[in-house]
Design a protein around this nucleic acid. Structure first.
Length: 610
DNA sequence: ATAGGGTTAG
């Protein structure tokens, strides 16, 4: 069992990108479902009393705590300073408590600098201090430093515990280094005095989920059931959430009922995940049902639950409805947060209403320190998509003045913006800059840049970049190959394109509809229409059905090669398959009609195809 | 006192 688990962990480490793998965009749904949802939703809200428990709970809990609550980094630094001046000095426990609180606020670099202050003042760390420190380095993707803290344990004679190892495993998994995570787990299990606990297993489950490997996650859950370390709510929530993100809502709901049968009660997190899943599927009625169900169990939706609703509505283009939800939040005394506003901004940008997005941005600015990197990236994306790259750049410069650090996504957004307006030079400069600033390019960065270079006739630079990707052992996917094959075809290098195409299977990659369509287009450009038609048959045989775009491509290819009658036959096939001629194909057909030299026998066919 | 599930951008 252990061996298999570790193989799975190791296998999950093949990709370079640390973020959860790309998941498809939700499809569009008709507005009628929303009306149903909105009505139910209103009914739900008006039938509910506003937030019955929150105030009493905080009142009860607050006075019992002996350490004061730190809410900002500034607080932490001030309290820390005062403590350092106190005589006698508070114990290491007191200092560590502050580190823990700052770490909870996710200000990891602040924790590190506070830790260094401790050291400078001669306060030696304890096990807790070092564990917190390791966790911070893990979240900063600095596993090297995490491991050197592990060395520090031994140096000062402290013994690392389950927390230490679980935190390190989490760090490795966050950096997509599954093999090392597995090695550590192995050491723990062999060591005897430090056995993995439920959190260790949950961490590994989360690692599988991050890679989209739900079945490995479920397998581990089953193994836990057999062993002494039974899965808890977190284990179930982790998998339910992952299934929902993949819109495998039925599986998630099965796990949900299974969990309740075992006497594990769901919480707001469970319901938020499920609601997210059904919303992505456009099942608004089901979302309302789940909302009602959770409230009936005295589990109250919080800001994150509502954010799921706001965001999905925005992604479906229904910003008006999303605004309605925000109003309801405010009515119910649930303050919209940065995420709420970011979703709204993105919703406006998707509809091209960048002015409204800008308004939301300014609203956030007026409320104090509400904007974050995502807010900037969202608005930058909005401007880039409208080809207003200079305004996007202004925002980019503005964010660093605010002390916000642009990340890989921010750079990718801008790179794409530059490429799409043909300013590939600027893009390449920015590409160097991002690396100089320590932001690692990921597969998407390369795909953006490769596409920009190919589309702007800089094929050799593109191939050079591709070589760089291979050298870095990046997880090169089919999208990258599609870009290159297309670039080669457009540049007239059909042979090289064909080589790449034929070599795909040896790289463990399967051509998708786009790959075939690109190759078909390339063959047509080179006048090899019959080979193109063979490929059209071949793709179908290999289980990859051509789509409307494929048919339009090959039909245009035949027309360009003056094989009008063959084109007409293909139009028939296309229609039988339920696809139709797009604007540019139609234009070509109209032009054929306007040309006098067309064989009169073909006229009825041509007219029939319109 | 310390680690672990749910929301946003390419």
């Amino acid at each position: 069992m252990l061996k298999m688990m570790m193989r799975n962990i190791a296998a999950s480490s093949s990709s370079y990108c640390t973020s959860r793998r790309w998941r498809g965009m939700p499809c569009l749904h008709s507005n009628s479902t929303v009306v149903v949802f909105a009505n139910d939703y209103f009914a739900f809200l008006h039938s509910q009393p506003s937030k019955p428990i929150k105030s009493t709970r905080t009142q009860l809990e607050q006075p019992v705590r002996n350490s004061l609550k730190i809410t900002t980094v500034e607080d932490a630094f001030n309290v820390f300073d005062r403590m350092l001046q106190m005589r006698p000095r508070p114990s290491v426990v007191r200092f560590t408590q502050i580190l823990g609180q700052v770490s909870k606020l996710k200000h990891y670099s602040a924790v590190i600098s506070l830790y260094n202050q401790m050291g400078a003042s001669g306060i030696g760390p304890d096990v807790y201090t070092l564990n917190i420190l390791i966790n911070c380095y893990c979240h900063l993707n600095q596993m090297g430093f995490s491991l050197s803290v592990l060395g520090k344990f031994f140096k000062v004679g402290l013994e690392p515990n389950v927390f230490t190892f679980t935190t390190l495993i989490n760090g490795f998994l966050l950096e997509n280094r599954g093999a090392e995570a597995a090695t550590l787990l192995h050491k723990m299990m062999r060591g005897g005095n430090c056995q993995p606990d439920v959190v260790t297993f949950n961490t590994i489950i989360r690692g599988f989920c991050m890679k989209g490997n739900n079945s490995a996650a479920i397998q581990l859950l089953r193994k836990m059931e057999e062993g002494p370390c039974k899965p808890n709510l977190v284990a179930y929530n982790t998998i339910i959430d992952s299934l929902c993100k993949d819109t495998l809502v039925d599986n998630a709901l099965n796990l949900f009922s299974e969990m309740m049968c075992k006497g594990i009660a769901p919480n707001a997190i469970t319901y938020t995940s499920l609601i997210h899943g059904v919303c992505k599927l456009g099942e608004w009625k089901e979302a309302a049902r789940l909302l009602n169900e959770m409230v009936s169990k005295n589990i109250f939706p919080d800001v994150r639950t509502f954010n799921v609703l706001v965001d999905t509505l925005c992604k479906e283009g229904m910003v008006g409805e999303a605004e309605g939800v925000v109003e309801m939040m405010i009515e119910r005394d649930i303050e919209p947060n940065t995420v709420t506003y970011n979703s709204l901004m993105d919703g406006y940008c998707l509809r091209g209403e960048i002015g409204k997005a800008q308004k939301v941005f300014e609203l956030m600015l007026s409320k104090g320190s509400m904007v974050n990197v995502v807010s900037y990236s969202t608005l930058i994306n909005g401007y880039c998509k409208r080809k207003r790259i200079d305004e996007a750049m202004m925002l980019f410069l503005d964010m660093s003045h605010k002390g916000l650090v642009p990340n890989t996504i921010t750079y990718n957004t801008l790179l794409d913006g530059f490429c799409k307006v043909g300013r590939v030079q600027n893009a390449q400069k920015l590409f160097s800059e991002m690396q100089a600033c320590g932001q690692l390019p990921d597969v998407q960065t390369y795909s953006i840049l490769l596409d920009g270079l190919c589309k702007n006739r800089q094929l050799s630079r593109a191939m050079q970049l591709f070589g760089e990707m291979e050298a870095k052992k990046l997880d090169i996917n089919i999208v990258i190959y599609n870009i290159l094959i297309e670039g080669l075809c457009i540049a007239g290098k059909l042979e090289s394109a064909r080589d790449l195409f034929c070599g795909l299977s040896s790289k463990g990659l399967r051509p998708d509809v786009r790959t075939y369509t690109i190759m078909i287009n390339g063959l047509c450009i080179a006048g090899l229409t019959s080979e193109a038609e063979n490929l059209l048959v071949e793709m179908e045989v290999k289980g990859c059905s051509p789509n409307g775009y494929t048919y339009n491509t090959i039909i245009r290819g035949f027309i360009h090669n003056k094989q009008t009658s063959r084109a007409m036959v293909l139009i028939q096939t296309m229609k039988e398959k339920g696809f139709s001629a797009d604007a540019s194909t139609t234009e070509l057909i109209v032009n054929l009609l306007l040309q006098d030299e067309v064989d009169p026998a073909l006229l009825p066919l041509i007219k029939g195809s319109l």
